[in-house]
Write a protein that binds this DNA or RNA. Structure first.
Length: 1208
RNA sequence: GCUCGAGUGGUGGAAUUGGUAGACACGUUGGACUUAAAAUCCAAUGGACAUUAGUCCGUGCGGGUUCAAGUCCCGCCUCGAGUACCA
């Protein structure tokens, strides 16, 4: 009997299906074990051998746990909403539901062939209304919840309303929008219903908000951050831009801290935890408020910040007192000698009937201004030519007067005054009447602006030399001075135009603009210039930073670029080249009360000082943003939402599911609405509680429904819970089912879901936990990332040539009549020759004759015997040269006979992918099969293949050499022709061989290349295993039924050796499975079968447990052997063999004897010898004496059971 | 740049707390069986020298600890994954 795997596998797959062998019971006395695989998206391409890797591992574990007596839940289903089906629908008009169904059927067929022990009775599909009913239900729960920070959990929105009614929102400590206004209970009562809804939306865990989103015009949808790779969409690689849209968002940020903390609860791979930690991005620091110095600050009423002014002195004493005398003398001087223009303007100002009084050459602060109206705080300057070279000083002076002193400065040139005095006076009048002007001293002109920044280094606050706002920051337009307006606006426009991708592409270009405004340092009260720059991100923190160039490299670079001072506030640190960012080594200097403090203490101190000032507090910031939940897509879950007066309303749960409507087109509507805008029956009738025609919308009883759909992660964020009770129509799952199954014990899947699916799922789980729906705050205890299986691509080398041909004739580029390909060996030798030319010690000129940099060999025809270059070649290279010459001549002849007037100069060999299925284990290409290929056969049909030794097959010289390909490990992909389908493997070697081989390849977590050749190893093992049970005449099944003890009736008991083999195997396999080291247990099986075969073991006492051991890995053959052993029920629940150490006890040990750590020989010694006895026995040994050659060892180290080392 | 992971024969990979490096398999070479091929079986297979015993070198590189290091420590190099102006 041969091992007929096709028949066996089909038989048992059918058996399992018919008997529902793997159906998990919700009502069992057994202990539960939940093994889960990540939800597949059923793509049209089907599975390749990389996909089932994780499924095989989890299946082995699930089957093992069944043998160990657990009630195992091992379900499978489909994440069947998604982009590809919709893209396909847009292209072909085919309904996504149909393509999805087809793809699922193909997936199922492929999965079934591999023999997985899934409980298919629990299959779910996210696109099934019976499933997404509960996705909608969870959405409603989120909408009806808010996050109470005091309780640190989600609570029902009704509780919040109750608080509002009683006391307003002052005492509410919730995670909510940034800009929530304070209101009292009375205010709340006075709000209209709509206003109340608006307020509540600011608190709900899912809310509508205008958000800046990643809009992908080509896909017509919004993408999540993790759906964008390198600035383009993950699927399709289309450009992505920033756009503001009203979107549903999920307040995942409320859970940031818990998502971080609870990572400690789960046994997940550290890299995955790290990447979630980074994604959440917690940083501790402080929020600091900087006052913006007003453009025209109040100067009276004692609120002035000008500390130098003597309040008792007259109002026109505006100069700084220390230099008042000097300035006044100078001013008097200047009044006597006015310029022409000054005199003319002074006359005009006095003669015209202006309401305001002007002074000429008046000292203010440390300057003398030309004209000033003190009431209106307007300074008029007339610039002579002399000012041209002192523009900078003027600007500085103007800034001081404007920012610190609150004056408005207007300037005229001499020419303006002399030529058009009327126009000048008109401008002055206009300026006097402008409302932005002080309008009289003591009056507050506008409310003070503040900038809040988040910093992780509040200790460096005295190193602030400027502030930087994101260009999108809302304050920018409010604080920019008229002088800087143009520059700032130009900069903002330029930044907005730059796509995210451009911004990322050149992070090195430093750009920014000065707003003209100044902020006040909270401690030193010094003015700090406010800049904008796109290195500050609008979306992080407050969108503004206090820039400390000495302590932050980005600030440093910015300061250097714009010539902003870089004050050093670190003790003993050189900052002339680089910023200093090492917290540990920080000692603060030049910082008032912080001097001499290290980082940690300085932070504490500064925060407490800021708190006293009311200008800051300690704060924890998270990088994690709220997740946008709307997609402008058809093929997704519809929201259970309709709109009344623009406010979203939930449809009550009893009317769910709201079924995805039919549409004619899957594209956005002409008005740019999502595809659901094409639906004609898509309105909600509150009276009938039904979806009705859009034409009935009257906004009284019939309202429009939401047009967005939910994103891909909606349905996959709770499916693991639904599997526990997948057909429940009344609840998302019953309490009993949940109480029994609790959570996932083992989850296997790819690491690519680290910051998407796995974070969102944890978020929903925590929410459902808060609501008491699930019993555990984390859904998966243990998680394993399986590695990727990469492909091994195969290449042939196409012969290309370089030629020159007449351009006069209208001839297309010449090509060979028949394409030519050379085998890898042949290519390699020619390539070596080519490289030899390039590296030879011949002149550059000579090199250029023989070869050029583009890989073309040329001019080799001139290499004839006894030339200098020829003599450089060794024998092998001379042979290669001959082969090359023949090729070259052939190509030359071929082109010449085409009579196109082209001359061939050189040859090149280009690697071309060929389908790996035509390549055997020895890397030989099956040319005949390749020529028959349905897709590419034509291309190769007439091609010439030149083999290993340069034999030219079509020239009639078959030297019997093979045609080899070169191989390279690449990602498995259709375009690289290296995809291997599991179907083909199952067909040729069987599912059991595939399962074993996938495990045998290497550690589960590691990525490793697939090479079909190796599968003969595991296939051969299965054949050997089969033969072990079929050692009878002509391969008949033969198992010796003797009981373990006794050996009655003349049949021998199992050999001691066989028992040792068996129990060693039990021990190893058990340990391996528990450690998820599946590759090593396959080796163990091989060793066991090799040994048992050598022992000619036929004993049932050995072979029966062996079948159970193998069963998780190779279930089909195990079932067949099990039934041949006389069992009528499946092997699936047979108990796992029990390991007994007594069979492994050895009576002797072969000790390696090493000298100075090097093993020289081995000595067989009884296992129970003491250290001393071992030493004595070893020292007495002939070989020991031979090694020592009379020397006395310094030391003898004996490790019983391990090794003996003799030193000396 | 930062974070994490990994470097062992021609290849995939073993080596459990420091204790015989290269298990197991692929590939390669030779042999048996066969008219032949496939399949199967047997033998050899890290490198170098010696081909009889044997000797030396070998786990990315350079140091160190130890009787003993692939494994531990220090410093580098290379590759891979994630992330990216995160204040």
């Amino acid at each position: 009997m041969t091992y007929d795997f096709r028949k066996i596998e089909e038989k048992w797959q059918q058996f399992w299906a018919e008997n529902q062998t793997f159906k998990a019971d919700n009502d069992s006395q057994k202990e539960k074990f939940y093994v889960l695989d990540m939800f597949p998206y059923p793509s049209g391409a089907g599975l390749h051998v990389g996909h089932p890797l994780g499924y095989i591992a989890s299946d082995i574990y699930a089957r093992y746990k069944r043998h160990k007596g657990f009630n195992v839940l091992h379900p499978m289903g489909y994440d069947s909403f998604g982009l590809p089906a919709e893209q396909y629908a847009i292209q072909t008009g085919q309904h996504p539901a149909i393509t999805t169904e087809t793809n699922i059927n193909r997936y199922r067929e492929q999965l079934d062939k591999i023999g997985f022990s899934f409980d298919w009775s629990r299959e779910v599909r996210t696109s099934d209304p019976n499933y997404y009913k509960w996705t909608q239900w969870i959405f409603i729960q989120l909408f009806n919840s808010w996050y109470n920070k005091d309780a640190d959990r989600a609570e029902d929105i009704s509780r919040l309303i109750a608080i509002f009614e009683k006391e307003g929102n002052q005492s509410v400590n919730a995670v909510c929008d940034e800009d929530v206004a304070l209101f009292s209970a009375a205010d709340w009562q006075a709000f209209t219903a709509k206003q109340q809804q608006e307020v509540l939306l600011q608190y709900r865990l899912t809310y509508l908000a205008e958000t800046e989103v990643n809009w992908c015009p080509a896909l017509g949808t919004v993408l999540a951050n993790d759906e964008i790779v390198n600035g383009v969409s993950e699927r399709g690689g289309h450009p992505v831009i920033r756009k503001k849209m009203t979107q549903w968002s999920m307040r995942i940020s409320a859970y940031a801290q818990r998502l971080l903390d609870d990572l400690a609860m789960v046994d997940w791979p550290q890299p995955l935890k790290d990447s979630q930690t980074n994604w959440i991005g917690r940083s501790e620091g402080a929020e600091v408020t900087f006052r913006v110095l007003p453009l025209a600050p109040p100067q009276g009423g004692g609120t002035t910040s000008d500390l130098n002014r003597d309040s008792s002195s007259p109002k026109f004493h505006t100069a700084d007192s220390d230099i008042y005398g000097v300035l006044l003398e100078r001013a008097k001087d200047m009044r006597k000698n006015p310029t022409k223009a000054e005199a003319k303007l002074w006359e005009a100002l006095r003669n015209r009937n202006l309401d305001s009084k002007f002074r000429i050459q008046h000292p203010i602060s440390r300057y003398i201004v030309d004209f000033v109206c003190l009431e209106k705080e307007l300074i008029v300057e007339v610039d002579g030519e002399i000012h041209q070279y002192q523009l900078n000083e003027d600007a500085e002076r103007q800034l001081l007067l404007e920012q610190k002193k609150g004056y408005t400065v207007i300037r005229f040139t001499n020419d303006e005054v002399l030529n058009d005095i009327d126009e000048v006076v008109y401008k002055i009048e206009t300026a006097l009447n402008s409302p932005s002007l002080g309008g009289g001293r003591g009056e507050v002109n506008s409310q003070a602006q503040e900038i809040s920044v988040f910093t992780t280094r509040p200790d460096t606050i005295f190193g602030v030399s400027f502030m930087t706002l994101a260009p999108e920051h809302e304050l920018v337009s409010k604080i920019t001075t008229s002088g800087q307006k143009e520059e700032v606006e130009a900069y903002i426009a330029a930044t907005a135009k730059r796509s995210e991708r451009d911004r990322m592409a050149d992070v090195k270009t430093i750009t920014g603009a000065f707003t003209g405004a100044y902020a006040e340092h909270p401690f030193s009260k010094e003015p700090i210039p406010i800049w904008i720059g796109d290195y500050v991100l609008a979306g992080y923190g407050t969108g503004a930073v206090m820039s400390v160039p000495c302590g932050d490299q980005r600030d440093y670079d910015f300061a250097k670029h714009f010539n902003i001072p870089i004050p050093n506030i670190f003790e003993g640190v050189d900052i002339s080249e680089l910023a200093f960012a090492d917290k540990e080594k920080t000692v603060i200097a030049n910082s008032d009360f912080l001097n001499g403090l290290p980082y940690k203490e300085a932070v504490k101190r500064v925060i407490s000082e800021l708190e006293q000032l009311g200008q800051g507090k300690g704060k924890i910031n998270y990088r994690l943003r709220d997740a946008v939940f709307s997609r402008q897509r058809y093929w997704g879950e519809p929201f259970p939402v309709y709109y009344v007066d623009g406010m979203p309303q939930m449809i009550s749960a009893e009317h769910l599911p709201i079924i995805l409507p039919e549409v004619e087109k899957y594209l956005p509507t002409e008005t740019g609405e999502p595809p659901l805008g094409n639906a004609t029956i898509w309105a909600w009738d509150v009276g009938k509680s039904a979806v009705v025609s859009n034409q009935l919308i009257d906004d009284v009883t019939v309202f429009p429904l939401e047009l967005n759909t939910m994103p891909g992660w909606a349905g996959s964020s709770y499916y693991f819970n639904r599997y526990m009770d997948p057909h429940n129509e009344k609840e998302i799952f019953s309490k009993e089912a949940m109480d029994y199954w609790q959570d996932v014990d083992l989850y296997i899947g790819g690491s690519e879901h680290a910051t998407g699916h796995l974070l969102y799922s944890r978020f929903w789980q925590k929410f459902l936990f808060d609501k008491g729906v699930v019993p555990k705050p984390e859904f998966a205890k243990k998680l394993i990332n399986q590695g990727m299986i990469t492909g091994t691509s195969a290449f042939v080398y196409r012969v290309d040539f370089e030629a020159s041909w007449s351009l006069n004739k209208k001839i297309k580029e010449p090509s060979l009549t028949k394409p030519m390909y050379v085998s890898y060996d042949c290519f390699k030798e020619i390539d070596d020759l080519y490289k030899f030319i390039l590296s030879s010690e011949i002149s550059a000129q000579d090199k250029n004759i023989f070869a050029n940099g583009n890989g073309f060999t040329k001019g080799l025809a001139s290499v004839i015997e006894d030339t200098v270059f020829y003599n450089l070649l060794d024998g092998g290279k001379k042979d290669t040269l001959k082969i090359f010459m023949r090729l070259f001549e052939y190509v030359q002849n071929d082109i010449r006979t085409q009579n196109v007037g082209a001359i061939v100069h050189g040859l090149k060999f280009s690697p071309i992918h060929v389908k790996v299925q035509y390549v055997n284990a020895s890397d030989e290409l099956d040319i005949e099969e390749l020529k028959r290929d349905s897709e590419f056969g034509e291309e190769y049909k007439d091609a010439i293949f030149i083999g290993e030794k340069g034999e030219v097959l079509p020239f009639g010289e078959d030297l019997g050499g093979a045609f080899k390909v070169s191989r390279e490990v690449e990602k498995m992909s259709k375009s690289k022709y290296n995809v291997v389908s599991p179907d083909a493997i199952c067909e040729e070697y069987g599912a059991d061989s595939l399962r074993l081989y996938e495990m045998f390849l290497g550690p589960l977590e590691q990525s490793k290349p697939w090479n079909t050749a190796g599968i003969t190893g595991t296939h051969g093992f299965l054949k050997k295993l089969w033969r072990l049970y079929h050692s009878g005449r002509e391969g008949q099944f033969k198992v010796d039924n003797s009981p373990l003890e006794g050996g009655e009736g003349g049949v021998a008991e199992p050999l001691k050796e066989s028992l040792k083999t068996l129990h060693r195997t039990i021990k190893k396999v058990e340990e391996d499975i528990e450690n998820f080291s599946f590759n090593t247990s396959v080796s163990t099986f091989m060793i066991a079968v090799n040994e048992l075969s050598a022992q000619k073991c036929t004993s049932r006492a050995i072979l029966e447990p062996l079948a159970v051991l193998v069963s998780p890995y190779a279930p089909h053959i195990a079932e067949e052997l099990w039934s041949k052993l006389g069992h009528t029920t499946s092997i699936a629940n047979a108990p796992f063999p029990k390991f007994e150490g007594k069979y492994l006890v050895e009576s002797s040990k072969e000790y390696p004897i090493s000298f100075n750590g090097k093993v020289r020989f081995k000595v067989e010694l009884p296992a129970d010898l003491s250290k001393e006895e071992i030493e004595a026995a070893v020292m007495a040994h002939d070989k020991t004496q031979e090694q020592l050659q009379g020397r006395t060892p310094k030391k003898v180290i004996v490790v019983p059971g391990k090794i003996v080392n003799i030193v000396g």
